[in-house]
Design a protein around this nucleic acid. Structure first.
Lengths: 194, 194
DNA sequence: CGCGTTGTGGTTCGGTCGGACCATAACACG
DNA sequence: CGTGTTATGGTCCGACCGAACCACAACGCG
């Protein structure tokens, strides 16, 4: 194999340009030329490393998701207490740093596309479903008396429902966290002082 | 004024074409030509009734919001019981019929644009804020002991957080309603049998 | 009955789009 | 030291974009 080039690094560099543009002004502005300019590479490379525009959008999304997942698991890996773990998982859904903000805005930019493409929709459903299972298991661990599935679903709905207002600046991140803590405190109240 | 033409009716007809296209495949596909074809009018009329593409997108959004608001107030107008009213307001946030589904998908398509344009962002924040105030007032009426602001914010977060999974087909509408009822039941439990 | 306002249709323009194409440079390997 | 694979760059094409422009049809009013 001649000409040593780190394909992954190139693809990542280009994908990051896609994210920045999508975050700034939606998929509409993610044209091959704009991406090339933003990434600082000739337009031809996008064709070489991703193929068509459609594949570029898909590839950039995959890299973003893989990125977010590894970042998330690195962040929650430490804690052991189930109750702390539940909280950590939920906070992961809020745009509390630049990476998560970008990831969530880009997801929003893709959202209508998810609806239109059943294959995409299926892969998007996986994440929340896995998260819901994990949360339910943790909740059962904390208090077997809970309706774990329903409470897990509610908590995820709360956290993801807080995304837009935080992104829009309607709530400060601290307010969103306080609301999640409010819901968690009520949920765990019975178990707290038995 | 010669040539009697119902401007509002024309604008609505064109706006509906914008919604359908935006719902189907995002703002990216909302081009003047596509809108004209979809609405069944010559492209020139879009220019005449809205001006530029940007103004068309804005105008279509305004009409959509006015529509949704009148439809919503007509739907919840009947009930008097505060507790029923709270539930009705929350269910209004779910995509339970074609109109609400369309409205919410179109909003999703505009979302990144909201983030980029501060004026738009401000107008988008108004709705939820007013809703939150209304809900908080109702909650205080039901049970003065509640932290009405926090509970109102949580309920709205739950309902709006349930939008994406319902739209994606992850939850059936009935499941989403059940989750909201679960949260409401817990909230009102103390008041139920004093 | 003109006549000026208002609405309509079609056409055109400069620019940008995604993607195809081709020549060539860089390098691992026989 | 060729030589073939891999990577790169520049260029070109037909299609479509938003928007401007123009000629004219319809109609209320003086």
């Amino acid at each position: 194999m001649p000409r040593q080039v780190d394909h992954e690094e190139r693809r990542r560099r280009i994908a990051e340009a896609v994210w920045r543009l999508a975050e700034r002004s939606g998929l509409e502005e993610v044209t091959l030329r704009q991406v090339a300019t933003e990434a600082g590479v000739p337009a031809r490379q996008l064709q070489y490393y991703f193929g068509s525009r459609e594949q570029l959008l898909l590839g950039a999304l995959e890299i973003l998701n893989a990125d977010a997942e590894s970042r998330a698991s690195r962040r929650i890996g430490g804690t052991g207490d189930p109750r702390e773990l539940v909280r950590a998982v939920l906070l992961e859904l809020l745009p509390l740093d630049e990476h998560r903000r970008r990831q969530q805005v880009v997801h929003a930019a893709y959202f209508v596309r998810f609806l239109a493409d059943e294959a995409l929709a299926a892969s998007v459903r996986e994440g929340p479903q896995a998260l819901e299972g994990l949360l339910a298991a943790l909740l059962r661990q904390v208090d077997p008396g809970l309706d774990a599935e329903a409470e897990a679903a509610l908590l995820i709905a709360v956290a993801s429902g807080l995304q837009p207002p935080v992104l829009l600046g309607q709530y400060a991140p601290g307010q969103a966290i306080a609301l999640i803590d409010h819901q968690l405190a009520r949920l765990f109240a019975a178990r707290e002082q038995p």
